[in-house]
Nucleic acid binder design. Sequence first.
DNA 1: TGGGTGACATGAT
DNA 2: AATCATGCCACCC
Length: 130
Amino acid sequence: MGKIKPFFEQVYAVIRLIPKGKVTSYGRIANMLDAPRGSRAVGYALRALKYKRNDPDYEGIPWQRVVNVQGEISLPGIGKQMQVELLEEDGVKFSSKGRIDLKQYLWEGMLPHEIKPLIGIEEENDGGQR
DNA sequence: TGGGTGACATGAT
DNA sequence: AATCATGCCACCC
């Protein structure tokens, strides 16, 4: 039946949909996955990529396109600089305060029912009856 | 094997 | 405006 991928997998699948030159927030990704309080879990998924960097299944995930709802980089330390660099390569500009103007660069995303087929999740209702 | 551990967002104080 | 608690989930040791 509705083949459910683990949540982290769903997160990665959504991130792959973020267009180059755009960003989205942890919270928006959570909302797209029907997990309105799951923003933190989205962050956990991103952190977990560190353990998967040798796994070909997880290559090419544009993780840099996820920022917090303020348009700021959440990733601490050296990784932050790397994220800024990658975003600049994407064509995203930072303000003098190190912020991204979400009015300009935000990827609005999709509704949960729109995004599920794209990330390999079937709707659980079979046939629309209820 | 089971906790502890994090790239967050929100509402209440 | 700044702090605080809480919800959320897979993975490593």
